[in-house]
Design a protein around this nucleic acid. Structure first.
Lengths: 349, 349
DNA sequence: ATGAAAGCGCTAACAT
DNA sequence: ATGTTAGCGCTTTCAT
C-alpha cells in the first residue's frame, strides 16, 4: 500500500521484499502454489498486486521457458488472403496463450532472409512461412538450429519440415476446365512480375487442363505479366488489360493470379468498354469476401484461408510435443462459379 | 570447420572457444569492432560463421537492450482496415529493425486486457492499440509501468499518451451532409451489436449534420444494429437489411459502419429486389480497395489506413527519444462519392 | 588489445 | 514450508 507502483516495473525481488519472503517463495507461488503455506501465499499475492508485478518474459525464456511468440512470414500481411491466414494462426495460437508476429516480404528473398534472422534472434517458438525463395536450404538450417519451421504453400517433397498447402495445380485445372467446358479456346493467364510458387503451379494446372482437353498450351495459353506486382496491384492489373486486349488472336477469357488482380481487370475492362462476361470471361483466385459482390459477381477458386492458418499453427504447436513427427496437412481448392464467366462470344470479338 | 553447427544454437561461449578468445572479446567484435585487433576480429568472425552464431535477443533484453517487438492490438487483424493499418505500422517499424506482434480483441474488453498483460510480460517496445474498452485507466497504468502506449482512434483528451486519429465525427457529417444534399430526409445508420468509439462518433456526426440541416434526428435518423457483429459480418448485415426495409416510414438511405457491412447490405438489398441507388442509397466507410468495384460502386468515407499505422509507429519509435513529448497526429476523412447514392425516389418507396 | 567478473529477472535443484 | 544457490546468454565496467 505504501509501495505505490512507481515508474518502471518491479520484479520478484520487490515482491519478495514487500511480502517479507525470499524470491523463491514468490517463484513458488507462481509455479507451484500448492507447496506454499496458504497464509504466506496470500501475503505474496497481496504484495504482487501492491507493487504491480508483471513477470518478465525474456528472463523466463533465458531460463528455458519457450517463447509464446510465433513468427509468420507472408508476402504481404495487408493482402486479405494473408490477413485471413494470419487470423487463423492467431485463433489457434491464442488457445495456447501464444501470439503472431506478422511480417511481410513483398516477394523479396532478401527481406525474407533478414526476417528469418530477426525471428531466430528473438528465439520465437517457431516460424510459419509462405516462402518466396524456392530454395529451402536456409529454412532447413533455421529448423535445425532449433526454431521449428512450418511451410505454407510450398512443396514439402521430402523436406524434414511440417507443411500445409492447398493443391494449386488442381486449382488451376479447375479454373481452366471450367472455361474450356464453356467453349473457350484461348485463355490469358495474368500473373505478377515474378511468380511465387503457388502462382506458377496454378499456371501449370491450367496448362495441364488445356492439354487434357486436347488443346495446345502454346496456342491456347497466353502469358501476361503485370509490371509491378506489389503495391496497388489493382492499378497494375488495369494496365495489363490493355495488353490483353491487344493480343491477337484475342483471348476470350482471363484467369487472374488472385481476386485483387481480378478487381483491377474488371475495372480496366469496364474502362475499355468491354463487357464481362459477354465479350470476355474473368476468373479470380482466393474467393475473398468481396468476390461475390463485384460487378459482375466473380467466378473464382476458393481457398480455405482461415483453416490454412489454423492448421499451420496447430502443426507448429505440436512441435513442442516430444513425439512430434513432421507431417503435411492438405487442402483442396474449390471452384465457385458466378457471373463473370460465360461462353465466349460467337466469333473472335 | 570441424565444429559443424550441430543441433540447438550456439552462443558466444562456443564462438569464443572456437576462436580461442574470451566471450568479452566476442562481445566487443559485435558492439565495438574498432577496438578489437583486426586479426583477432577476423578470427572471431570466422568462428561465428563456423558455429552458426545467432545472438540471443531475450538475453540482450535482460541486459537492457530494448525489444524490437511492438504490439498492435486491433479489433480484428483480418479486417482489411486493420490489415492495412498493421501494414503501415510494419513499414515504419521495419526501418528501425522492429516488427509487429498483431493481436485481435474481437471487441471483447476481457481479451484486450489479457493481451495487454501478455504484451507487457514480453516487455515489448511499446503497444499500439485501437481500444474497445472506453476506460483508459489500464492503458495509463501500462504506460506508467514502462511500456509506451499509442492510441489509435481513441479520444486523447488530456491523457498522458500519444495518439493518432481520424476525425470520425467529421466522417459521419460528410456522409450525412451528402445524403441530405441529395434530398434524403430519413436515414438508417447501421452499426454492430456494440459500438466501438469510432462508430459511436460517426453516428454522432450524422446526428450533428442532420440537426444542422434543420432536421430532427429523432425522426430523421433510424438506428439499426446487427446482432452478431464479429465474424462474417457480411451475412449479419444482409439480415439487418430486412429490418431496415420493414421500418416505417421507410429510410431512403443507409449509412453503414464500414465497407464490409455495406457489402452485406448491397447483397441483402439485391436479394430483396431493391435497387440501389434508385430505391435506396447506401454509404460505406473506410474506402477499402473493393469499394469502387462493387455493384454499384460504393459511395464511402475514405480513411488513410496505411498512414494511420505509419504515424502510430513513428510516434512509438519516438518514445525512445529522451526528449520525447506525448502528442497527437490527426487525419481527416474524405467523402468518395460514387454510384451507390442518388436522390431518394419520388414518394416513399 | 584482451579478459575477468558482476548481474539483468527468473527457475529449479538442493539445502535447511 | 521456505531459503540458498547456481546459472540461462549477454553487456559492461574495470582490471590487466
Amino acid at each position: 500500500m505504501a509501495d505505490r507502483a512507481g515508474l518502471g516495473r518491479s520484479g520478484m525481488r520487490e515482491v519478495a521484499q514487500a511480502a517479507g519472503v525470499s524470491v523463491s517463495t514468490v517463484a513458488n507461488v507462481l509455479s507451484r502454489p500448492s507447496i506454499v503455506a496458504p497464509q504466506t501465499r496470500h501475503r505474496v499475492e497481496q504484495a504482487m498486486a501492491a507493487v504491480g508485478y508483471v513477470p518478465h518474459g525474456p528472463a523466463r525464456q533465458l531460463r528455458g521457458v519457450p517463447s509464446p511468440i510465433v513468427g509468420s512470414i507472408t508476402l504481404d500481411l495487408a493482402n486479405p488472403f494473408y490477413a485471413e491466414l494470419n487470423r487463423g494462426i492467431e485463433d489457434a495460437l491464442s488457445e495456447a496463450g501464444c501470439m503472431v508476429l506478422a511480417c511481410s516480404t513483398d516477394l523479396q528473398p532478401a527481406k525474407e532472409k533478414q526476417l528469418l534472422g530477426l525471428l531466430q534472434e528473438q528465439a520465437v517458438r517457431g516460424i510459419i512461412i509462405s516462402p518466396i525463395d524456392p530454395d529451402p536450404t536456409l529454412l532447413l538450417q533455421v529448423s535445425q538450429r532449433g526454431t521449428p519451421v512450418i511451410l505454407i504453400d510450398h512443396p514439402r517433397r521430402q523436406l524434414d519440415l511440417c507443411a500445409v498447402a492447398v493443391d494449386d495445380v488442381a486449382g488451376g485445372e479447375l479454373a481452366a476446365e471450367h472455361l474450356v467446358s464453356l467453349g473457350h479456346r484461348r485463355i490469358a493467364f495474368l500473373a505478377g512480375a515474378i511468380d511465387p510458387g503457388p502462382v506458377a503451379r496454378r499456371r501449370e494446372g491450367v496448362r495441364l487442363a488445356l492439354t487434357a482437353a486436347g488443346l495446345d498450351p502454346a496456342r491456347a495459353l497466353v502469358d501476361v505479366r503485370m509490371s509491378d506486382h506489389h503495391r496497388s496491384s489493382v492499378s497494375a492489373a488495369a494496365r495489363a488489360v490493355a495488353q490483353i486486349l491487344a493480343t491477337r488472336p484475342a483471348p476470350t477469357a482471363i484467369i487472374c493470379l488472385n481476386d485483387t488482380a481480378a478487381l483491377g481487370v474488371l475495372e480496366g475492362l469496364d474502362a475499355a468498354g468491354v463487357r464481362v462476361p459477354d465479350e470476355i470471361s474473368v476468373v479470380g483466385y482466393d474467393d475473398l469476401h468481396f468476390a461475390a459482390r463485384l460487378s459482375p459477381a466473380l467466378t473464382t477458386v476458393h481457398q480455405p484461408k482461415h483453416q490454412l492458418g489454423r492448421a499451420a499453427a496447430e502443426l507448429l504447436l505440436d512441435e513442442a510435443n516430444p513425439d512430434h513427427t513432421h507431417r503435411e496437412t492438405h487442402f483442396r481448392p474449390a471452384l465457385k462459379v458466378r457471373a463473370s464467366t460465360a461462353p465466349p462470344p460467337r466469333r473472335g470479338r
